[in-house]
Design a protein around this nucleic acid. Structure first.
Lengths: 325, 325
DNA sequence: TTGAAAGCGCTAACAG
DNA sequence: CTGTTAGCGCTTTCAA
């Protein structure tokens, strides 16, 4: 493999000059730069970033850890991160990790000196806090779990609109299909707000109003599907369901259908995330969402240390479609 | 950041001994090993793989490059690769790259000394062949494009079954929605076989029998959606459609519906990949697929250099569901 | 079974 | 504007 030294020799300069040309840092005369570039092209020299990273202690890698690759929402975020990363010559790696696997993944990230970690999987193990700090990695727990990277997520307005609309259309018993284990949901602001607002509106909120589940250990779709079947079998008389994400909502709709219920006639369904498919599903799915591109941009600005001149706040919107009509 | 030297000092051994304990290579007495492990745990020492990689010239990273993150099929493969990777302590990074972006991505992979690249995006630029070879990276172009990593993909049997079934149910004009640009499809074996077998069966195969498109520049779903609308608008009298992948098929079904056609009554639709959703879509989608886990296993065996004692051949299956009934 | 020396390819810091 | 020196933290190789 051709290295800096070889380039330097052929170009008749010192290795350091080659570095200057390659990194674009420091002064190099136009003539020298051209000469060096020629040699680089001729030899097909590709700098070894491993070595560079060793010295500088930095890498240009950003990791994004998700619990469930079958959920298009994460991929939307990943996609947005990747697009954003191109502007800064960063590279995004995706990891799938359950809560149990997270430590192993984090350790690997530390070994590899990532520049930043966006973690949708679960809490960062406390144990690695110092390490992550030592290597200067910026950590972000997804906003759903109000993390160390503070960004305000304004869901309440959108949820209010959604619930108002359901009530207006005659909904009496609105279920929240959280689909996750209790511990997960407990850090999320949506369930508490749902309860609060329903009470405010004088609607019934019972023990059975929130359905927990096995997500992300199980795939969102299946969680929703099974939840809906269970719910109907148990004789619960609900006429609307909020789902923690769109994939879950698709599962719920299919589960309901399987049990002979019609959406939206018998049960109205609303999801979160507004993934692309939602507009095309049958029936088109109502959903609440925040702008993924924006979300990615926030994360990125934080990780690369861009000066932030805007308010760190994401406001959710409600999109009504046939599934809640 | 605590390093090998510090561990060595506290454990009263040489740095080299620490390395031996950490890597598990070379002889260390049980007593020494225990002592070292204690210090490692106490200090929370995490080896720096960047440095290790620099010396050894190897990494434990495998890259997988896809053209379209919104296509669940790729994610299924990615998921399978990740699961497989765990058995070998490898890490999988995912990259999204259009044909134009591929060189940049490959260059980055070379700079970072990846151990292997699974490339679904497009052809490897010839230019980097030598580099990839120099760093010992195993390259795999996806099997769809009969790549340098030879693995036989047996689609014909499944396609034959699918087409037979369509004909049996009265299909007269079967369209193939390739959805990709011509150059892409030209390396794929499916379109030629489709044409050949249709002729064999005495069915009409005209200019308009294969629909090309903008995938992966555009998302599969949208490509399918638009293709279906166009097709109907153009007055084409087709009664069945093969789609290059399931997401495209979903798009097609929704496009048809939009134009007032019923699936499967007016048009029968079959996809490729058999992603999880397909079983739950309305109507459930017929599909042709190969076993993703197996595919991932093959790739992995090749990359890590496992001895291969099985035939490198993947046989596709046809799953019939309501969309083609 | 353990240790010492050499160096991977690069950047940082300083000197010219 | 360009070069020199000194490592980054680890593995490889050889010697004890």
């Amino acid at each position: 493999m051709v290295n800096r030294e070889e380039v330097a020799r052929l170009a008749g300069v010192s290795p350091m000059t080659v570095t200057r040309v390659v990194t674009g840092k420091g002064y190099v005369s136009e003539r020298t730069r051209e000469k060096v570039m020629e040699v680089i092209d001729a030899l097909g020299y590709i700098p070894n970033k491993i070595a560079a990273g060793l010295v500088s202690g930095k890498s240009n890698r950003i990791a994004i850890v998700v619990p469930d690759l079958s959920n298009p929402y994460y991929l939307q975020v990943v996609g947005a991160m990747i697009d954003e990363a191109k502007n800064y010559d960063y590279v995004v790696s995706v990891y799938k990790a359950s809560e149990a696997e997270l430590p192993q993944v984090i350790e690997s990230l530390i070994s590899n000196r990532v520049a930043g970690v966006v973690n949708y999987a679960s809490e960062f193990p406390k144990k690695y806090e110092k390490h992550l700090n030592d290597i200067g990695a910026k950590t972000i727990r997804t906003s759903y779990f109000s993390g160390e990277f503070s960004m305000e997520l304004e869901y309440e307005d959108a949820m209010r609109k959604a619930i108002d609309s359901l009530i207006e259309k005659g909904a009496k018993k609105i279920i929240f299909i959280a689909g996750m284990m209790t511990e997960f949901v407990s850090i999320d602001q949506r369930v508490p707000f749902y309860k609060k607002y329903l009470k405010e509106k004088g609607l019934e909120v019972g023990e059975d109003s929130v359905v927990y589940g096995n997500y992300p250990r199980e795939e969102a779709f299946m969680v929703g599907y099974n939840a809906a079947m269970q719910l109907v079998k148990s004789g619960c008389e609900f006429d609307a369901a909020f789902c923690m994400n769109d994939m879950m909502a698709f599962g719920v709709i299919n589960g309901l259908r399987r049990m002979g219920k019609r959406v939206p006639e018998d049960v109205k369904v609303i999801g979160f995330d507004n993934i692309q498919m939602s507009a095309f599903f049958e029936p088109p799915l109502s959903s609440i969402y925040v702008d993924t591109r924006q979300e990615a941009r926030f994360y990125f600005d934080y990780i690369v240390g861009n000066p932030v001149d805007y308010e760190r706040k994401l406001v959710a919107s409600y999109v009504e479609r046939k599934s809640a009509d």
